[in-house]
Design a binder for these strands. Structure first.
Lengths: 158, 158
DNA sequence: ATTGAAAGAGTCTCAGT
DNA sequence: ACTGAGACTCTTTCAAT
């Protein structure tokens, strides 16, 4: 971590490729980007040392595992000073996978992933309502996810 | 892909572990879960063949790359039948990383990732306004992301 | 289905450029 | 800073259980 770091085009190309497929071998990725596998290795090591690359994660089809339902919930707080304590309580609910403190209409914004409508109802009506400091909530259930991708880190993609 | 598949506790434990760190070796993961590396290999192969595991992705610190700003935008459509054509246009904007069709207040809901406020302003005022069929939008800029995690696939985590 | 061992492939290090 | 080769580790296959 830390220190200033200049990333060149090769670094960004490596990140871009591996954001989609982290299993590609250094040799193959080197071929694709016209450098040796050793160079890929050195660059990735540098990116890891600087905390830009933090590891790899398994890409799991949550729908296939039965997690069919995604909902977004805007939360109004009684007082915005309650953010920290409410955040702590929200973190304890495993179905809540993301929490953001936001400008605009809502004080905070969460994403909920569930296996069925009953589980979602439980989270929204039982779990959330038990938390002190939440004034009210507005729920948006996702009927379809058109896309969910990573931001482009290089302009001219391979 | 396809076919019915029963996942046992070991399958879910493997998924759970590798969702956080996909680089762990089969031997090490086997030790952790009290089976051989060969068994881990067979299970992962099965999960891949059934489309539950779709590969691995690089875990990149986007903030370190300069992508500091995340915003959520609720979109009101003139007619909900315009969803498909608007979705197609939204997909062309690289800063828009996610699009969901939702119930509730908004017709659709997007997530935008940018390097600075100017880039966000460009997306919101120029890019979005050019798209036919959008009536109006409501923006929520994330001031802080308290957490962003995966759903729990096993109750008793290691 | 799980195991352990052998074969094959990939990573990592390092001396040379 | 990049390369290629050698040492090492991991994946993959397979015969045995």
């Amino acid at each position: 971590m830390g220190a200033k770091l200049n990333l060149d085009k090769l670094d960004l190309q490596i990140i871009s490729e591996m954001m989609e497929d982290a299993q590609i071998s250094y040799a193959d990725l080197g071929k694709k980007l016209f450098v040796s596998g050793g160079t890929i290795h050195v660059r990735i090591k540098k990116l890891q040392e600087h905390g830009i690359v933090k590891g790899t994660k398994l890409n799991v089809d949550l729908k296939a595992l039965g997690y069919d339902i995604t909902a977004f919930v805007g939360i109004f707080l009684e007082k915005s000073s309650l953010y920290d304590t409410v955040a702590k309580d929200l973190r304890k609910i495993p179905e809540i996978v993301r929490l953001n403190y936001t400008t605009g209409n809502y004080s905070m914004f969460i994403e909920v992933v569930c296996k069925d409508i009953n589980q979602l109802r439980f989270v929204l009506h039982d779990a959330l309502q038990k938390i002190k400091g939440i004034e009210r909530t507005e729920t948006f259930i996702s009927l379809d996810e058109s896309f969910n991708r990573k931001v482009e880190v290089v302009q001219d993609v391979a």
